[in-house]
Every structure is written in C-alpha cells, then in structure tokens.
C-alpha cells in the first residue's frame, strides 16, 4: 500500500472542519488559561485569604493527576453533580483548568523578578496592592514569563487531541474516525502531524512577535 495523496485530497474538507474546531477550542482555552494564570498568581502573591490556599491545592491537584482522568471527570462526572456542558464547552473547561494550573506557576515565576523596590514605589504613590499587581507586576511578569507561557500553550494545543476521547470532532477525532472506515493510517496520521506542527509554529511566531513588542522598553 503506497502513500495515497489523492485520498488525502478527498478527505481535506473533513480535516479542515476538524482543524477549525481544534483552533477554536485551543485559542479560547489559551486565552482563558492565561487569565486563570494571572488571577491565580495574584491570589497567591497578594496572599488573598482562603483563595490563596485554594490556588495552591488546585495547582497541585492538576499537576499530579492525568489529563485524561480530569477530562473524564469533567465530561462524565460534572453532569452527575448537576452541571451539564456541551462537548465543546467541556473541552474548553478541561483544557483551561489543566493549562491554568501551569500558567499560574509561569506567571508566579515572572513575578519573582519584580523587585520589592517597585512594590514600595507603587505603594508610596498610593496604589493599592491590586492596582500595583495589575499596572506594574502583571505586565512585567508576563514579559518575563512569556517563553514558559508559550510552552504551556503549545502543550495545550497538542493536548486538545485528547478531546477526541469524549467525542469532540476536532482534528484527531476526524483522523481516527476516517481511519476506522478507510484504514489509511499512514496518510491520516502524517497529515494531522503536519497540521499540528504548522499550528505550533504559527503560535510560536505570534508569541515571538508579542515578546518583541513587550521587550521594547528594555532595548536600548
């Protein structure tokens, strides 16, 4: 059996539909997970009572349990607890919760580079701790943490393929679905690997543009 390009051409529309869903789920989850990261890191470094401790527990839980177990918990467990989500939103929730834990640690790492002196300067100008965080610490931490935030985002993008396990028709689901009918395993997996690779490269490209812009104040 040789590599059949004509076959892939015929499957192209289906793959594109899967790709589009992958892009939507991933993009939304990346944005939301960064938001979780910034807010969670804020709760920790500003030592918000109760919430700060909850954040620690959340990060530990997510980092020490398998993503697939988290996904099944959200998809099969939450309805039992009275929360019924669509496939799409189950996927977004799962990826956001998973990546959010890592983004918290990424932002926190960046925050460690924001010195005590800037905090005191902000306070002595009358800024509240929260305003200091939003206007000074978070922007600086995001600049420093950007490379590790990109890594987490790339992992998120690749891990979106786990969502095939709950039946969300994203890129990997489409491929597996076709393989089960046509048995064109090599063509399909080669195709989706190339597509994932292109997605990651695109994401990296935009991240490096962003990094360049955020670094403008530090270039002489």
């Amino acid at each position: 059996m040789e590599f059949d390009v004509a076959y892939l051409n015929a499957q192209w529309p289906a793959l594109m539909r899967g790709l589009w869903l992958t892009v939507q789920v991933s993009a939304l989850s990346i944005v939301l997970s960064i938001l979780v990261g910034v807010l969670g890191a804020a709760a920790r470094v500003l030592q918000v009572p109760v919430l700060g401790k909850l954040v620690v527990g959340y990060v530990e839980f997510i980092r020490n349990t398998p993503l697939l177990a988290q996904l099944f918990f959200i998809f099969y467990g939450l309805p039992g607890l009275g929360l019924r989500l669509s496939l799409f939103w189950s996927g977004v929730l799962c990826l956001t919760v998973w990546a959010g834990a890592y983004q918290i640690e990424n932002v926190r790492g960046g925050l460690e580079t924001v010195g005590k002196g800037l905090r005191e300067a902000a306070f002595s100008l009358g800024l509240s701790p929260w305003r200091f965080f939003r206007l000074v610490a978070a922007p600086m931490a995001i600049r420093v943490g950007l490379p590790s935030m990109l890594n987490t985002s790339i992992s998120l993008l690749k891990n979106s393929s786990y969502l095939q396990a709950i039946g969300l028709a994203e890129l990997t689901y489409v491929a597996i679905d076709r393989i089960s009918m046509d048995f064109r395993t090599i063509e399909m997996f080669a195709a989706i690997c190339v597509i994932y690779l292109l997605l990651v490269l695109t994401l990296s490209f935009f991240a490096s543009r962003l990094e360049y812009r955020l670094n403008a104040p530090f270039r002489l």
């Binding site: 002196g117 005191e120 300067a121 902000a122 100008l125 009358g126 000074v136 600049r143 104040p217 530090f218």
Partner: peptide
C-alpha cells in the same frame, strides 16, 4: 500615601512604562 510622596535611592521607576506614563499613571488612577 497620596498626600506624602517618597523618593528612593534606586529611583524605582516602572521599567515597562515610558517616562510620561510613569508620571501620569497614578494621578489618573488615584
């Protein structure tokens, strides 16, 4: 603290903001 300013040994300007923005951010927000 909005009534008593402070100047530090190490200047402590916000490095990610322009000189102008360093000066306007707190009058605006506060």
């Amino acid at each position: 603290r909005t009534e008593v300013g402070m100047v530090f040994q190490d200047y402590a300007l916000f490095p990610h903001l322009t000189v102008l923005r360093n000066m306007t951010i707190t009058p605006e927000r506060r």
